[in-house]
Design a protein around this nucleic acid. Structure first.
Lengths: 345, 345
DNA sequence: TCTAGCACTCGGATATCGCGAGTGCTAATA
DNA sequence: TATTAGCACTCGCGATATCCGAGTGCTAGA
């Protein structure tokens, strides 16, 4: 059931939210009547407010204060009242400069995160690219002592991963070389997801042919890529910006929020939901379903390579935020970041 | 000039601090007279307090409140009044269990940091081991495309570092193998500090002999180890614990403290000062010389391998903390951590 | 359907008061 | 001389009272 409201009500709700976002003060009927160009008396506005309150779009903190938007009010506003101003070109250029460096992806993520926080004065967050979507370019195996093998996965241009695995069998260097050659031939160029699938298929197929070395090679590979599914990490910048907002300033709320940031788990979970859908997504207040984020909104967008989403970035701030601005900032940043990643292949 | 105070004054100052640390309330003459077993009247205690205040060891927040310790008071307390109770053996065992796992050093550092914060209910901090002191075990060189070479430094058992360098000259795989062999022969087993020194010496010496390949090898190695001096990092856990303390609860102070934690630079600088001296070190309030740490104390100890300090760990909390307990905790933790690192070689 | 008018409500700012804990000083005491 | 009892004084804190103004809901009239 969509809550239908007429044009005049829309105008007023919009003005109310814009005013409240600007000043942080509950908005009274008088002010609203004056500011809107509708030539309505305060009394009329009051009536309308009464209706909006009945619909759950606004509420008043107490009897003799003005109205403030509810989560539902913000939702309606964001969905159908908002006029997103696209970003100033100069500003986009500034962002681009900030982001477009040839540092490692990790550093880049930090940059993007603090760009978001810096420019919005709220908390910026970037979920690291899902490992599964990274392309494997090269595998190298080095023997260490005690049946331990150092596995080096060369991924993207700037990206290298090491893993140390233990094997039951002690390989000779030349055996290892053979194994590496085989794995390189059959796996390089694929993303980790594919790699794992292909491995499983190979294992089933080879099992019958009983080539002992191959068998072992696959076992080993399996144990390497098993841990590939490791949880993604996310980088949050500018947490302390949130201390400025009076609506979050009670110490307990703030603490639970910061604890949430530190553990990251739940945050990640919320953000993961955005990975599927394209474009900017918004969670308002309780919508995230995660208690410490009450009174907070999340504006996110996924970013990716080759039109495939591999991560999510966005901004966390109080529900009372300038959605138009934030949306365009998040959108632009996601596009820029995707572009930078793309151009690295 | 040391501020000399007589035994009775010492007793009272000690009691005052212990009481204040416990309750967080300014301590009045009456309470102090009653609690101390000195059989003094409140009036006498007041006189003594007057003296201590004149010496700058205590102060009163306002006329009609009791006294609280000053930084200088805490300092005297810590230096000569404190009786450090050594840690309960059970507790030490618990710590040991927490720490003594065979995870990577990075994870270990996280563990130690949150152990410290968890057990003290303040912020725990661990400065990562200085890279220079790690021992190099093995070097491997892998050619990538475009004159880029992947350098793999196998350090400690669990520790591997990668670096990608660009070279002017394109090496053939066999040349690279040769270079690697040479570097392994001459460098492995030394710590990075030594490695760098040895490299410089070699370069000077070889320059005359003009072996082109060697020359290039050394150039390359030089460019690898140049960046070794990279800034150390530190891990801070349990920041949010500090939100509980009323003396830090004004939002601006808290914010500047958290900002300090995030940038880490200054914190690191303060902590680095502890690297030199052995045993537990303490900075009280302003002593750190770093503004956001006013009202905070730092209790640290260095840890190391083979009796050589390679890092610092400790606790950050309000000046009003239970120094005796914290000192023994930090001390024990540093010893345990050193032991764990040692046993890994 | 809108608006003017009006009584009412409530939060926030400000002022006042009393209490109690604690001080500093002085004079008496051991 | 060092300690103590006594006393006047100070000050922060919490409770209470008061006022003001912004804003509301309702009703009746345009």
């Amino acid at each position: 059931m969509t809550t239908e409201i007429n044009e005049r009500e829309q105008t007023l709700l919009k003005m109310l939210i814009e005013s409240y976002v600007r000043d942080g003060q509950p908005v009274g009927s008088q002010k609203l009547a004056r500011d809107s160009r509708l030539n309505l008396s305060p009394a009329t506005v009051r009536n309308i407010m009464g209706d909006l309150e009945a619909l759950g779009l606004v509420s008043s903190p107490h009897t003799s204060a003005g109205r403030i938007p509810t989560d539902k009010g913000y939702r309606l506003f964001v969905d159908s009242l908002l006029t997103v101003q696209s970003l100033d070109n100069d500003e986009v250029q500034r962002f681009k400069q900030e982001i477009d460096t040839d540092e490692s992806v990790e550093v880049l993520i930090e940059r993007v995160s603090s760009l978001l926080s810096g420019v919005t004065q709220m908390a910026g967050v970037v979920v690291a690219p899902r490992r599964e979507h990274q392309v494997l370019r090269h595998i190298e195996l080095l023997p260490l002592s005690d049946n331990r093998i150092l596995v080096i996965l060369v991924m993207d241009k700037q990206e290298v991963q090491n893993r140390i695995i233990r094997t039951a069998h002690a390989y000779t260097p030349s055996e290892l070389q053979q194994v590496a050659n085989y794995l390189n031939a059959s796996l390089s160029g694929a993303d980790l997801q594919t790699v794992r699938n292909r491995l499983l298929a190979d294992m089933r197929e080879t099992r019958s042919r009983m080539d002992r070395l191959m068998q072992r090679a696959l076992d080993m590979a399996e144990s390497v890529f098993a841990e590939t599914a490791a949880l993604d990490d996310c980088v949050i910048a500018g947490q302390t910006n949130l201390m400025e907002f009076s609506e979050l300033s009670d110490i307990d709320r703030l603490r639970s929020l910061f604890d949430a940031f530190n553990s990251k788990q739940q945050i990640l979970h919320v953000l993961d939901q955005c990975l599927g859908s394209p474009g900017v997504q918004i969670f308002i207040g309780q919508e995230s379903g995660y208690e410490p984020l009450n009174n907070c909104s999340l504006v996110t967008s996924s970013y990716g390579v080759n039109n495939r989403a591999i991560g999510v970035l966005g901004v966390i701030g109080p529900t009372r935020m300038a959605y138009d601005r934030v949306i365009s900032i998040v959108d632009a940043t996601a596009r820029l970041f995707s572009a930078v990643l793309n151009q690295r292949h």
